[in-house]
Design a binder for these strands. Structure first.
Lengths: 182, 182
DNA sequence: CCTCTCATGTAAGACGTTACATGATTCA
DNA sequence: TGAATCATGTAACGTCTTACATGAGAGG
């Protein structure tokens, strides 16, 4: 249900069409959430059906450009959103990283290969970090909450990277002294 | 597909029954993954059908205790697992926290209420952190990868907590100087 | 006696991802 | 001319969560 509320939240800033909502969600909290078109349009439809948002078609006959539908929030939508934002803290966060799941079992694989994979992953984390810092420059003068979330994204990314580098060192050291042992 | 591999990975340590697999997954990487019974048993069934694991019923007639089914990994299962562990890094991690999603929009809600929710959340993070540190004591002499993942969990938890405390301070300060402004 | 933990399983539904289909505009 | 981006949408499939049903043993 969170995506529905994210949409309502975004429409507080201004009216938007579906495509824009997706790119905004990526920018605003791509750090802590992800979304795809397969969710956006069906959700817009149901929000519309429930009267939480309004829609106006943007192309008068003869206009160029693909058909666009402008969505805006209704009073009912504002109420639903306000209720959601007031709620007490709920369920825990979900952190799911297929790499970490494999990492736990690297002891059962080949050590050399494991180190290779870790190196690749470090590069990946670093690339991601660079991207986040790049984005942060553009975001840092925006709304305070958006900026703070962006900072969290960077700090978590840094924590991941630092941890993995340390882990690599430990495993490498371990691999050297431990040859043959089980 | 990751859960299937996690099961195969765990069965490398020793044969287990379904219930145990769940508790072990929670202990070993509850930091980075979660699981429920609704997934365990169907997955065990399909792994069995595909010959990746074996099963032996544990209760001879007359034995006490609930019926248990001991699962063990087959050679085919070992191969499938080895292949998985060798693969190059794949899709990005997913971090999803309903609280953070709401946080981004706290600017549209009441400031006082937002601070309350943040305080609750800080307490929640701290409770979680204490629990993780407690578990770590028992885990720290286990297999190196398990220990490292547990350390990551703690470090991330610390990063979250520190960030949220800082964010609270900033928002509080902001709220004071900013009254009435939009 | 009651509650907790151990133990196995199913079903319904919510949620998310991927792939497909379509088509215009912009820029190199 | 071709690629990238903007734009809307559907269908199929996978995955995850929640709730339900059942029952034994252990410990207070």
């Amino acid at each position: 249900m969170a995506i529905r509320h994210a949409i309502l939240g975004l429409l507080h800033y201004r009216s938007m069409h579906g495509y824009r909502i997706k790119t905004q969600i990526e920018q605003y909290f791509g750090h802590v959430w992800s979304i795809n078109f397969g969710q956006i349009y069906p959700n817009l439809k149901s929000l519309l059906d429930e009267g939480l948002i309004d829609m106006t078609e943007e192309n008068q006959a003869g206009m160029r450009g693909p058909s666009r539908k402008l969505y805006s929030i209704t009073d009912k939508g504002r109420e639903a959103f306000a209720e959601w934002i007031r709620k007490p803290p709920e369920k825990n966060m979900i952190l799911r990283d297929p790499f970490l799941m494999r990492f736990v079992f690297f002891g059962f694989g080949e050590k050399e290969r494991a180190l290779e994979i870790i190196d690749d992953q470090i590069r990946l984390y670093e690339k991601q970090l660079a991207l986040r810092k790049e984005r942060y420059k553009k975001l840092k003068d925006r709304e305070i909450h958006v900026r703070l979330i962006s900072e969290l994204g960077i700090e978590l990314n840094e924590a991941f990277t630092a941890w993995l580098k340390r882990a690599r060192k430990e495993l490498h050291r371990n691999g050297k002294g431990d040859r043959g042992r089980k």
